[in-house]
Design a protein around this nucleic acid. Structure first.
Ligand SMILES: [Zn+2]
Ligand SMILES: [Zn+2]
Ligand SMILES: [Zn+2]
Ligand SMILES: [Zn+2]
Lengths: 149, 149
DNA sequence: ATCGCTAGCGTTATGTCATAACATATCAGT
DNA sequence: ACTGATATGTTATGACATAACGCTAGCGAT
């Protein structure tokens, strides 16, 4: 969108609509990935009724790099490092099958190697998914159960 | 037409069951990822009636490294490199949004870096998903449409 | 042989995730 | 106020995946 001549705020990441704000807050308060329907359930008392309201908000949040979709889980988390979208290469996620904890990180070397493969093969890279599944340090100590598939 | 997951004549272990063999053959003959329901549709005339028959076969094939699940697509491909399961680290996939072509590859450096992150963080790595989305060289030349979401 | 175990199979029903289609509302620029 | 873009609300439907049940075939041990 075109900015006016005296607009020095070239990034306005907090220009969120009501639904987007509700969804982002829900993700922020959760300590685990949430499915769109999980989010919906937590927002019924705020007036949300239909999945589409959640999915639309999620689309925008993801577009702005404020949230991420975990493909291997069909669930969503808020971004742990706002700015990862622009400042760093694509993010990777370590997902614990024990407690649901998700650690977001980025590895420049990994991103460089994948970009390299793409360049070599004439592949126009648009989006990268990197997801590690396993058990986090905490869960390895305590032999706790496995809530995640 | 470019072939990727083409007619590799996989050495199929003789211990595949009828359903597993049907599903693997279907994946081998396809030149694109197939959803479980796509596979089911192609196997109706062979007597398959229910999704579960396909999912159960897929589970076994994936377990044996003969097929892979593409998380970002909710679809399946046959393994382009039998033995990737054992011989190499986890596989990566470049998925073309234009034609559906999938290239399977493995990058030792990428796998090493991800294993390194896991080791540093006490994360017991069980499974890794690496999926690149974009447009393949062929599709960049010809401005063809976008059948994949 | 037949018992008991295991793996696979077939079927119905259900659960979970995601989008199509359409109507209405809100807001900024003119 | 008019207009176009974006966001919203709602209903219905499509797409992906599993629960729960009982049956069958294969196989080694008794
Ligand atoms: Zn992030
Ligand atoms: Zn954990
Ligand atoms: Zn493979
Ligand atoms: Zn292509």
């Amino acid at each position: 969108m075109a900015h006016t001549h005296d607009d020095h705020h070239h990034e306005r990441p907090r220009d969120l609509t009501r639904n987007q704000d509700l969804v982002l807050s829900t993700l922020n308060e959760a300590h685990e990935p949430l499915s769109a329907y999980d989010i919906l359930d937590r927002l019924r008392e705020d007036g949300l009724r239909a999945p589409l309201q959640v999915y639309r908000a999620l689309d925008k949040l993801i577009e702005q790099g404020l949230a991420h979709r975990l493909e291997s889980l069909n669930a969503f988390v808020c971004c742990a490092d706002v700015g990862c979208h622009r400042a760093r290469g694509s993010a990777a996620f370590a997902i614990c099958s024990g407690c649901g904890r998700v650690d977001e990180f980025a590895d420049d070397e990994v991103n460089a190697r994948l970009a390299g493969w793409a360049a070599e093969h004439g592949f126009a890279l648009e989006r990268t998914t990197i997801e590690l599944r396993g058990r986090c340090a905490e869960c390895r100590k305590s032999q706790s159960g496995s809530p995640l598939r």
